[in-house]
Structures are given as C-alpha cells and as structure tokens.
Measured scan of single mutants.
Amino acid sequence: VLKALERTRQLDIPDEKTMPVLMKLLEEAGGNWSYIKLDNYTALVDAIYSVED
C-alpha cells in the first residue's frame, strides 16, 4: 500500500482519492497485487483518473 501511495503522491494525487480506488481494484483483483503493480501502478493511476472524469 505504501508504494502505491508513494507513486500517486508523485503525481499530486491525495491519499483520500487513492485509497478508495485502490481498495476497489484490490477487491476486483481478488487481492492480487500483480495487476495493480504493473508498469509502476499504471492501472491504479488510470483508475483514479477515470473516476475523476
């Protein structure tokens, strides 16, 4: 979780936006981090930006 938060902080995305999206992605992935961690957490960042749209 810390590495995911560090990555999104680099992009000026607050933890308050990151955590709900991260928890949803983890739930959808059955707790499997490998998809979320791919390409420096690209799936997480993309999911956060899609929620903002």
Score class of each variant (00 low, 15 high):
Leu11Phe: 08
Val1His: 07
Leu38Met: 14
Val21Ser: 04
Gly31Glu: 06
Pro20Met: 13
Trp33Phe: 06
Val45Gln: 02
Glu6Asn: 08
Glu27His: 12
Asp39Met: 08
Tyr35Ser: 13
Val45Tyr: 02
Trp33Cys: 01
Leu22Gln: 00
Asp15Ile: 04
Asp39Ser: 08
Thr8Phe: 07
Leu26Asn: 00
Thr8His: 03
Asn32His: 07
Thr8Ser: 05
Ser50Met: 12
Ala43Asp: 02
Leu44Lys: 01
Glu28Gly: 08
Leu22Lys: 00
Leu26Asp: 01
Glu52Ser: 13
Pro14Gly: 05
Ser34Val: 10
Glu52Thr: 13
Ala47Glu: 06
Lys17Arg: 12
Tyr41Asn: 00
Ser34Pro: 04
Thr8Arg: 03
Leu38Glu: 13
Leu25Asn: 00
Gly30Trp: 06
Leu22Arg: 00
Thr18Leu: 04
Tyr49Arg: 14
Leu2Lys: 13
Ala4Val: 06
Leu26Met: 05
Ala47Ile: 04
Leu5Pro: 01
Asp46Tyr: 11
Glu27Cys: 12
Tyr49Gly: 08
Thr42Trp: 12
Met19Tyr: 10
Leu11Asn: 04
Lys24Thr: 07
Leu44Asp: 02
Trp33Leu: 03
Asp46Phe: 10
Pro14Val: 05
Ala47Asn: 04
Val1Asp: 05
Gln10Trp: 08
Val51Thr: 14
Asp53Phe: 14
Pro14Tyr: 04
Glu28Cys: 10
Thr8Pro: 03
Glu6His: 09
Thr42Arg: 15
Glu28Ile: 12
Thr42Glu: 11
Ala43Phe: 10
Ser50Trp: 09
Leu44Gly: 00
Leu22Pro: 00
Asn40Glu: 07
Asp12Leu: 13
Leu26Glu: 01
Ser34Ala: 14
Ala43Glu: 05
Asp39Val: 05
Val51Met: 14
Leu2Gln: 15
Glu27Pro: 00
Glu52Cys: 11
Ala43Gln: 10
Pro14His: 05
Met23Gly: 03
Lys3His: 12
Leu38Trp: 11
Ser34Ile: 08
Glu52Gly: 12
Asp12Thr: 07
Ile36Asn: 01
Ala29Cys: 14
Asn40His: 07
Asp53Tyr: 14
Leu11Arg: 03
Asp12Ile: 05
Gly31Ser: 06
Tyr49Lys: 12
Leu26Ala: 01
Asp12Arg: 14
Tyr49Leu: 14
Ile48Asp: 01
Ala47Val: 05
Tyr35Ala: 13
Lys37Val: 15
Val21Asp: 00
Tyr49Thr: 09
Tyr41Thr: 01
Met19Ile: 15
Lys3Glu: 15
Met23Trp: 10
Ile36Pro: 01
Asn32Ser: 11
Glu28Met: 13
Leu44Thr: 02
Lys24Ile: 05
Arg9Gly: 04
Lys24Gln: 09
Gln10Asp: 09
Leu26Cys: 05
Leu38Arg: 14
Val21Phe: 06
Val45Lys: 03
Leu38Cys: 07
Ala47Gln: 06
Pro20His: 10
Leu38Phe: 13
Glu52His: 12
Ile48Asn: 01
Ile13Asn: 02
Val21Trp: 05
Ile48Gly: 02
Gly30Leu: 09
Asp46Glu: 14
Leu11Gln: 04
Leu22Ile: 06
Tyr35Val: 13
Tyr49Ser: 09
Gly30Asp: 10
Gln10Ile: 08
Ile36Thr: 01
Lys3Cys: 14
Ala29Thr: 15
Val51Lys: 13
Asp15Asn: 04
Pro14Trp: 05
Ala43Ile: 10
Gln10Thr: 08
Gly30Pro: 03
Thr42Val: 11
Lys24Met: 10
Ile13Glu: 02
Gly30Val: 05
Met19Cys: 13
Met19Asp: 00
Glu28Lys: 11
Leu38Gly: 09
Ile13Gln: 02
Glu52Trp: 15
Glu28His: 09
Glu16Cys: 14
Asn32Thr: 06
Leu44Met: 02
Ile13Ala: 02
Asn32Glu: 10
Asp39Arg: 10
Ser50Leu: 13
Leu38Asp: 10
Gly31Pro: 03
Ile48Ser: 01
Ile48Trp: 02
Ile13Gly: 03
Asn32Lys: 07
Leu25Cys: 04
Ala29Pro: 02
Lys17Gly: 02
Trp33Asp: 04
Val51Trp: 14
Ala29Phe: 15
Tyr49Pro: 03
Arg7Ala: 10
Val1Glu: 06
Met23Arg: 09
Val51Glu: 13
Tyr41Cys: 03
Glu6Leu: 10
Gly31Ile: 05
Ser34Arg: 10
Gly31Thr: 05
Arg9Tyr: 04
Val51Asn: 12
Thr18Phe: 04
Asp46Trp: 10
Leu22Glu: 00
Ile48Cys: 01
Ala47Trp: 04
Val45Ala: 02
Gly31Lys: 05
Ala43Cys: 07
Asp15Thr: 02
Lys3Asn: 12
Leu38Thr: 09
Val21Leu: 07
Glu6Ser: 07
Ile13Val: 06
Gly31Phe: 11
Leu22Trp: 01
Leu38His: 13
Ile48Glu: 00
Met19Gln: 03
Thr8Glu: 02
Ala29Tyr: 15
Asp39His: 10
Ala47Met: 09
Ser34His: 15
Trp33Lys: 00
Met19Trp: 11
Thr42His: 15
Leu2Ser: 14
Met23Pro: 00
Pro14Glu: 07
Asp39Pro: 03
Tyr41Phe: 10
Arg7Leu: 08
Asp15Val: 04
Asp15His: 04
Ala47Gly: 05
Ala4Cys: 09
Leu2Asp: 13
Glu27Val: 10
Arg7Met: 07
Arg9His: 03
Glu16Ile: 09
Met23Thr: 07
Met19Glu: 02
Asp39Ala: 09
Asp15Leu: 05
Ala4Met: 03
Gln10Phe: 10
Asp12Trp: 08
Gln10Pro: 02
Asn40Phe: 06
Tyr35Arg: 10
Met19Leu: 14
Leu38Ala: 15
Lys37Ile: 15
Asn32Trp: 05
Asp39Leu: 07
